[in-house]
């Protein structure tokens, strides 16, 4: 949450980012990596993202990708009707991050598919309520940009939790901590003295 705020998200959307990461990590999916890569990607250049309103206007011809957090939160707000208005395929950054919002947006099973051009793999993830089922190697899930499709499908057979990705986790956490640090104010003498207990003797 702090990292997303540090990267410039509004407080409410930063909370949504925190929700998505927690939801995915609890199911063993590499959300810390996905968010770290996404925030770094946005930050590395003045990236153009598409305004979320355009998701519900399929006639639009703009090609800039959508933010998975902003679009995801809006889809969750709009519910099943919002999902039905989406075009057949959308350009999306880090598609994995949108999965928890799709699960929140409707009660029926939804299949997300995208092609990871880096690993040349088709990624397929099915979500329904609290359940997520992966039909892909877990390492192929994160990619900065992909065309993502969404369709109703049969429910996943059972809730599945994948083994946690510990490898490289520290590196990605460090990236998120760097973004979070942007929310911290540089210390000044005034701020030091404004800390609780500053300038007082602790011995009694």
């Amino acid at each position: 949450m702090k990292a997303a705020r540090g990267a410039g998200f509004s407080w409410g959307l930063a909370e949504e980012a925190g929700f998505a990461v927690q939801w995915l990590q609890a199911r063993g999916l590499p959300a810390v990596q996905s968010l770290a890569e996404y925030l770094s990607w946005c930050d590395s250049d003045a990236r153009q993202l598409r305004p979320v309103q355009q998701a519900f206007k399929p006639e639009s011809s703009a090609i800039a990708p959508f933010c998975p957090i902003t679009l995801g939160a809006s889809l969750a707000d709009h519910g099943p009707q919002g999902l039905s208005q989406l075009p057949a395929a959308i350009q999306l950054c880090q598609p994995l991050l949108i999965a928890p919002f799709i699960a929140a947006a409707c009660d029926t099973a939804q299949q997300l598919q995208w092609y990871n051009t880096t690993s040349n793999q088709l990624c397929t993830l099915t979500v329904k309520g609290p359940d997520a089922q992966l039909q892909t190697a877990i390492g192929a899930l994160t990619c900065n940009l992909a065309e993502c499709s969404l369709q109703a499908c049969a429910a996943p057979k059972k809730s599945q939790c994948y083994s946690r990705i510990e490898k490289d986790q520290a590196h990605h956490m460090a990236t998120l901590n760097d973004f979070a640090a942007r929310t911290y104010a540089p210390a000044t003498e005034a701020s030091r003295m404004a800390g609780a207990g500053a300038g007082l003797n602790d011995n009694d």
């Binding site: 929310t183 104010a185 210390a187 000044t188 030091r192 800390g195």
Partner: peptide, 23 residues
Amino acid sequence: WYVSEEKLEPRLGERHEESIANY
């Protein structure tokens, strides 16, 4: 209300006296 970089603890600053509004 802000968080200090130095100690990562919440602090309460003076809006009109310190340049901390961005935080």
